[in-house]
Design a protein around this nucleic acid. Structure first.
Lengths: 189, 189, 189, 189
DNA sequence: AATGAATGAGGCTTCATTCAT
DNA sequence: CATGAATGAAGCCTCATTCAT
């Protein structure tokens, strides 16, 4: 009896993961505004299942990106330890962030859209990425490598915006633009 | 007879302008994907009138922004003549561009959306703003003030993206980020 | 003064004819349900002018075909006089009718549609073509060439229906089918 | 679990049938171009249900008539076996076809409309009725009862057209006209 | 009498969301 | 828990018709 409950829970967990995978894939293809039914189909479940697990679209979007966001945040201290200078670490970390954003296209637009239902995601990113970014910026500032007044939140938002790609403005271009922005953040010598 | 036709035409022209004003206002509130009916209501006309004057949404969007785009483009040579250095002129011109984009927020998102059908607008901006920006960049390059490899199109797209504002990321922040990007475009000494 | 009234009337008459010509042409291209605006454009007038002259679509349709209907009716006595036998005359007359119907495609469908607003046209055809057809049938009956029980009205309706053409069922096929129907109407020997 | 799914499917099937019945009824009243909403209302369902089951109007129309078309086609060999002569069988079969067409009046018009998108229906009729008719015609030809050059497709189209009924041109008249057409198809002795 | 701008009803279609099984 | 059929609001667009000039 207790066991069967465990089995059921495990099954539910697997369903949930399947939905997340499907949603991630569909978001790549169609953006975060993709029809719920498309996600359900890709996951091989009914739409009701999506709604049970993620009553709002924002919750789904948030859940989809939580893992990657966590991974990205966890990267910061590692890069800081590995790199020659804090500023180099910051550059590498932003590269990773760009990769994350550009791969999941539609996310950048979603973040920038000001959609009130996406505040969860926004909050999530703030909660995890902001501290990570701040730690890097602090290190840069301590090393005298950072132009004064550069703060984490606007920087992340700016990078997020720069990663809204399209035809003629692809990942490579986005990276280049982030590079330029970063160059502008370096303390003048 | 001829006169009354003229009167009618004038009235139609006024209607058309009313639609453009309404559309501009609604675009600010809701973005360029706002329902046609909302625009019609704000303009105090029927939806049919919108469709009569602007058969496709792209034509409406384009018309809404055409004047301001033209004005912005015309600013480039003037600033170039007035300013101490080409790079200063570029900075001022981008400020004007930012003002334009931020005021009409939704335009940035529209440009970044990759929505086919908005290619008219895209083309319009390329046709008018790209040459303006290029003239400034060329002048900067001639003066040795520009980091090699910075070109007009990605720069405009990037600035457009940086101007997608929201709560906690307003016009002032956007300006600041564009400033940093621009700083990154300056040739290192 | 009286003259200028005459001039105005003549002008109005010309306008009316222009509309009729345009409508006829548009009906050939798009059928009798073509948008009023298309007709107005083709005629080079405003839609208001159409409505002034032909308050209902049925009146316009009727007017468009009146001349040709009259001509077709007038053909009957001529063919009867020219032909070897009344049945031959009937065949030729139906050929002319088929040509009329098929050329103005959409008319057949219109007649068969049972559209209550097209009863004028229906009445017109009855008033003019029915007597013509009856005269031919009577002559055939007198000559003993007609299967008993064949009457004008159903025959005209049937021919009208047979002339609803489409891809893979064109004028030539329609003619052939009318021929077969006619063959079925000939008295058995 | 499996059972409840079965119940749901059965319910869905009943809904589907209800839609088909409603559509058939509405088509009789208003023709196959009737507004989707009218069909939905008559069926007591939402418009979405119509679109779920029949994404295009053509699919709906096709489904509505499929059963009867199949039944009609299946009649051909039976009549051929039962009847004295192939030509008699052909006559009886066309009678059945006429009954089918006249009862669902709107079908004839649909077939004759040339509306693209209704090609499914067209194809369906070709696929099922054409071979049936051809088998009868072949038998007639073998028996020397058929006028040379009479083929199935135009004949079916012609009969379809003859069955576009209206006031003063009802089922009985349509039958009579088809009889005459058929008489014209009989080989002359 | 002619014009054509404006209107808005009406039809189409999509999809987020609910709920009975 | 999962399902997916059903719903209907919401957008889109077309065009018949009116009416001020």
């Amino acid at each position: 009896m207790t066991e069967s409950v465990g089995v059921r829970r495990a099954q539910a967990q697997r369903t949930r993961c399947g939905v997340l995978d499907a949603a991630a894939a569909v978001f790549v293809d169609q953006g975060v505004q993709a029809p719920v039914r498309d996600i359900a189909e890709r996951a091989g479940v009914g739409v009701g299942t999506i709604y049970r697990n993620f009553p709002t679209r924002a919750e789904l979007v948030t859940a989809v990106y939580r893992h990657q966001i966590d991974a990205c945040a966890a990267l910061a201290p590692r890069l800081l330890a590995e790199s020659d200078s804090p500023f180099t670490a910051l550059g590498r970390w932003l590269d990773a962030f760009v990769d994350f954003l550009v791969t999941k296209h539609g996310l950048g637009a979603a973040l920038g859209s000001g959609d009130p239902g996406l505040e969860n995601l926004h909050a999530l990113m703030l909660d995890t990425l902001l501290p990570a970014c701040e730690s890097l910026l602090d290190a840069c500032a301590d090393a005298g490598e950072l132009r004064p007044g550069v703060t984490a939140y606007p920087l992340l938002r700016a990078v997020g915006n720069l990663c809204i790609t399209g035809p003629d403005y692809d990942r490579a271009v986005a990276r280049r633009m982030v590079e330029l922005l970063l160059a502008g953040c370096r303390a003048e010598r």
